[in-house]
Amino acid sequence: MAAINNLKPTESELEILQILWEKGNCTVRDVHEILEKNKDAGYTTTLKLMQIMLEKGLVARDASSKTHIYRALVNQEKTQQHLVDKMIDNVFNGSAARMVMQALGNHTASKEEIDSIKKYLDGLSNQ
């Protein structure tokens, strides 16, 4: 498994990882059909990306049958945390508050999301 500090998935690789995290084990065709719903993606491009991800240690491939099955090797929460930490450091000069305010200012959060954020913040202040 790739060490978390060496993880540098590209935007396209993150899209594939999101699919694998949500759906579980998938063929290249499965991933390609989902990607194609949102963008113009060629099958061979998807295949090549997944082969690169295999080499990077982001995914594993079961080649025991004719149809190869891929699964994510990296943990979703750890990957997200690593990327958020990098973003806070590199884009927001180490300020998590600035990142949160920017995110909430640019995206309309649902009442449920706002309630969840408030609950989380209340929990932090009670520690």
Rank of each mutant, 00 (worst) to 15 (best):
K118W: 03
Y70P: 03
H107C: 10
Q127E: 13
K39G: 10
A41S: 10
D122F: 07
S12D: 10
F92H: 04
K66T: 09
T79D: 00
H32L: 06
Y43R: 12
K56V: 06
H32M: 06
L83N: 09
Q76L: 03
Q127Y: 14
H107G: 01
N126L: 11
H32T: 01
M1N: 12
M87H: 06
P9W: 06
K119P: 00
K39L: 08
L58Q: 07
K111Y: 10
A109R: 10
S12N: 15
I4T: 12
I117C: 10
M50D: 01
L54D: 08
L14T: 03
T67L: 11
V74I: 14
L17N: 05
D30N: 10
K86S: 07
E113M: 14
Y70I: 00
E55L: 11
L121K: 11
K66R: 14
I88K: 11
L121I: 15
N126R: 13
G123H: 09
C26D: 04
M53L: 12
L35E: 01
T10L: 09
H32C: 01
M50Y: 02
V31N: 01
I16E: 06
D62R: 05
D40T: 09
K48L: 11
K78E: 13
N38C: 03
H82P: 03
R29L: 07
G24V: 03
I52E: 14
E112I: 04
H107T: 14
E11Y: 11
R61F: 07
D62M: 04
Q18M: 13
V74Y: 05
A109Y: 09
M53H: 12
N25R: 10
L104C: 11
G94H: 04
E36Q: 15
V100S: 12
M87R: 09
M87V: 00
L73E: 14
V28R: 07
Q18E: 15
V28F: 05
S65W: 05
L121R: 06
F92N: 04
M50I: 03
L124P: 02
Q81A: 13
T67V: 09
T108R: 14
L17P: 02
S110Q: 07
G123Q: 12
L121F: 10
V91A: 15
E15L: 13
E36P: 01
H82I: 01
D40I: 09
D122C: 06
T10Q: 05
Y43S: 04
K119R: 15
K78D: 11
E77L: 07
A109T: 00
A2Y: 04
K37S: 10
A97I: 09
E112C: 05
T44F: 13
S125D: 12
V91Q: 13
Q81P: 00
D115H: 08
V28N: 01
T46I: 04
